[in-house]
């Protein structure tokens, strides 16, 4: 049974859930509110160009704070719900590798987060084109797509970490709180120069800043990307090892 079948299986389940659409609606609403606030409080002379575009596209607020929460909650639902309802048992009694279950869940959530993020971006972009952005905005789109993808990859670290936590506990609330706490701890660690280079969140921010500067230092960008990917792979490996050894008693 290949990974592609499992991925289709996970995507069907994910997009059937109300929570998936509630999270999407919430993200779009926040993005519209943020746009309106930016528009109402716009500076008299400076309301054009790249910086304004970034402000209105919520790189710093909606994306930075909302997406990780959505990612963690969806990951918690994806795993803990299966354990609490026993559907994981139905799935695991099929000839499926446990590590493939985890990988397919992560990939399904990656696609979902892309869907949510780029929808937010699309909505913001349309609002901006109508009411704010100056000429030449379209040329920023490739950079914006990459920036959002960097943030999405950052949320995948949190998703993989949530899978690790879920291998210890089936309690949905505990899993969500530990994962959210983990995210906050890394945001704090970012402030300490001695350790910031070891945190994934620093490298996500670093990549985004490189893209914003529009004079990309590719060596640094690749380094940051590598660190984020190492985090994802390390947590996935840990989660699949723990899942493989775990007795399924639900």
């Amino acid at each position: 049974m290949n990974l592609l079948n499992l991925l289709k299986f996970e995507i069907k389940k994910l997009f059937k859930q109300k929570i998936a659409y509630i999270a999407l609606t919430l993200a779009i609403l926040l993005s519209i509110i943020h746009f309106l606030l930016n528009f109402v409080n716009r500076p008299a002379d400076a309301y054009s160009g790249f910086n304004v575009l970034l402000d209105n596209l919520q790189i710093h607020t909606v994306v930075l704070f909302t997406l990780p929460i959505i990612a963690i909650l969806m990951a918690v639902w994806s795993v803990s719900e299966e354990f609490s309802t026993g559907t994981i048992r139905t799935l695991m009694t099929k000839p499926v590798k446990r590590e493939n279950i985890i990988v397919s869940k992560l990939l399904a959530l990656l696609l979902y987060m892309c869907f949510v993020s780029y929808t937010i971006m699309g909505v913001s972009f349309l609002l901006g084109l109508r009411w704010g952005y100056g000429e030449g905005v379209i040329s920023f789109v490739p950079s914006l797509l990459l920036m959002y993808f960097e943030y999405i990859l950052g949320t995948m670290v949190l998703v993989a970490f949530t899978f690790v936590v879920a291998s210890f506990t089936t309690n949905t609330v505990v899993t969500a709180l530990i994962s959210l706490g983990f995210h906050r701890v890394f945001l704090v660690l970012e402030f300490f120069t001695q350790v910031q280079k070891f945190t994934f969140s620093y490298h996500v921010s670093n990549s985004v800043q490189l893209l914003m500067a529009r004079s990309i230092d590719f060596r640094q960008a690749y380094q940051s990307l590598a660190v984020v990917l190492i985090y994802i792979l390390a947590f996935l490996l840990l989660a699949s090892t723990l899942w493989d050894r775990r007795d399924i008693t639900t």
């Binding site: 389940k13 059937k16 859930q17 109300k18 309802t85 026993g86 559907t87 048992r89 139905t90 009694t93 099929k94 000839p95 639900t250």
Partner: peptide, 13 residues
């Protein structure tokens, strides 16, 4: 191999 283990569990929605 076809299995039914424990209480039947399916996706509720």
């Amino acid at each position: 191999v076809g299995c039914l283990v424990g209480e039947p569990a399916f996706y509720r929605n």
